[in-house]
Design a protein around this nucleic acid. Structure first.
Lengths: 334, 334
DNA sequence: GTGAAAGCGCTAACAG
DNA sequence: CTGTTAGCGCTTTCAC
């Protein structure tokens, strides 16, 4: 098996020094045409590709940004991350993605892996994690930004939105419509500040209106999971006239399940989501939900991290959300 | 700004040599308890993380697998890739994902980047790419596997399914139902062998039945795109009784658009998809589609690449697809 | 059981 | 314009 070619192999074949080859590759204008030609031919012939590790070792930077997201199995993060990548790529950076499956230990390991791999910066989702990780990042001097959550006083700069306020707003609107028996399907709250904030938003709105807390079901992420949670909720309290879901995927599952139960949405029961994924307009009836500017968030997060890399001290950014009223929310049944 | 700590810093602080620290980290059993304790304390205190580049440089392997997928903005690849990652992770490998946006040049660059970063192996989607890339991979001696497509005689081992046969089968079924005026919405065929194979499957089935080629619209990936293509198709031929889509996302868009046109599916027009994403069961009416065993494919691809890394010579694997008959396909209108 | 020293492949002064 | 040389941080013989 032929060893993968090195700079030296190319140099030998082209009859020049390794420095010259290196120059051809990195600052082609500093080497004369004829030499460059010869070098490039050798590069081509040998199928040479520079060894990234060696380069990173000396250059002290990798032009790599790492991102640890809870899951890639759904659209919640996809759009924002894609936007994030687009900006980074234009700036010459490569994005490395790891997924944690919503597991703190896996996330911690992913962060350490990314750092060890020389990521120049990091994108994390939300603030909920072991403080030790923050001091680790601090010690490493690696700029990291949090997205999908906002906290001007958090341990890291953030670019996100206010889940609590948005959900509070939506819940108030529903209460204004006359809903009194409200249930909620939330993603697991442990280690997930967005999920918690959304439950809080609903709870506060209900308290403000003199109602008790919402009937709550927590579940893992997924359509099936949302459907199952919807059934459990109805078992616990058949009087529910509205089920608010922590995200559109859970709401899509709930929508499907309502149909299974022979319930018409919103006539028999109302449903709401969060995120405004394309999914929200695909299900029937279309979901009333909270629109999150995923694309803008991804871009802002990228610019923030690029700014930090450039030595600036970017500040947190709060992005606006707004409520998309569609068919799945109506007044309660008589 | 405090330099990020190195092995040497740890060694100094623990009062041992760098070799000992290295051993503590990699073969802890070869160093006496007391020393290890001291070293680990220093590691902890300094927040030391090994420099991956330096390690990779000497170890000649990175325990990293790269994957280049066309897009992460949708579910088509998400599930399979997640399964792929699960297996790799269990085997101690890290997955690096790059997306090409269905652009050959971007894909080529991503492949080179991944190789340069020292990926031990590569996962690629489909076979359609510049042959130069295959010889590049060959020269580099990097094991690569193709997924989402199958060709026992292809330039790389593959783990996939037969898009052409599956679509042929589905089209035959539809023709059996009485459909004669068939349209098709395909993803762009250029550089996409799956898309091409699906169009071929339909075309052959129609030819076998003595019908002409399907009325074809090509489009980019996306719900909106599928919706727009559906409208164009109807403009071109209002007699269409069936529109077969190259994937579920396009079909979901078509479904929504049919509704906009005041068409009832499948009474006025039938629709089919491909992939059997969760989406297929969420839209109304539920999509008749081709089920692809994404999870099994991801796992098989991971095992294949692991086998290649272990020096074996794995062979191509063809996975079965099957047709999911749901509500979106019915007999043609009278 | 632990230390000294030789590189891994590359870049970046510094000479020539 | 091109070559020489000194490391980057780590692992790994080979001695002690």
């Amino acid at each position: 098996m032929p060893r993968t070619p090195t700079l030296e192999d190319v140099a030998t074949r082209a009859g020049v020094s390794t420095a010259t080859v290196s120059r051809c590759l990195n600052m082609p204008e500093k080497v004369v045409e004829a030499t460059r030609q010869r070098v490039m031919e050798a590069v081509e012939a040998l199928g040479y590709a520079p060894n990234f590790s060696a380069r990173a070792l000396v250059a002290k930077r990798t032009l790599t940004i790492g991102a640890v997201i809870p899951t890639m199995e759904n659209a919640i993060f996809a759009e924002g991350i894609q936007a994030f990548q687009d900006i980074l790529q234009a700036a010459g950076y490569t994005l490395l993605i790891a997924s944690s499956g919503y597991d703190p230990a896996t996330e911690a390991e992913a962060i350490r892996t990314l750092v060890a791999r020389g990521a120049d910066g990091l994108l994390l989702i939300g603030f909920d994690r072991d403080p030790a990780l923050y001091s680790f990042l601090d010690k490493q001097g690696i700029p990291a930004v949090v997205a999908w959550a906002y906290d001007a006083a958090g341990p890291l700069v953030s670019v996100g939105f206010d889940s609590r306020a948005a959900m509070h707003h939506l819940a108030c609107h529903a209460i204004g419509l006359g809903h009194r028996h409200i249930g909620m399907i939330s993603a697991r709250q442990s280690g997930n500040d967005r999920a918690r904030a959304r439950v809080e938003g609903v709870t506060e709105a209900m308290r403000d209106a003199g109602l008790g807390a919402p009937v709550l079901e927590e579940t893992d992420y997924g359509i099936e999971e949302g459907a199952a949670a919807f059934s459990r909720l109805l078992d616990r309290d058949p009087a529910l006239t509205l089920v608010m879901c922590g995200n559109d995927v859970l709401a899509a599952g709930a929508t499907r399940q309502a149909e299974q139960h022979g319930l018409s949405v919103p006539r028999d029961i109302s449903l709401t989501g969060f995120d405004d994924l394309e999914l929200a307009r695909l299900v029937t009836p279309a979901l009333t939900t909270v629109r999150v500017p995923h694309r803008a968030m991804g871009e802002a997060a990228a610019r923030t991290i690029l700014a930090a890399l450039a030595g600036e001290t970017p500040s947190a950014r709060l992005l606006p959300t707004d409520i998309k009223l569609r068919e799945s929310l109506g007044p309660p049944r008589a």
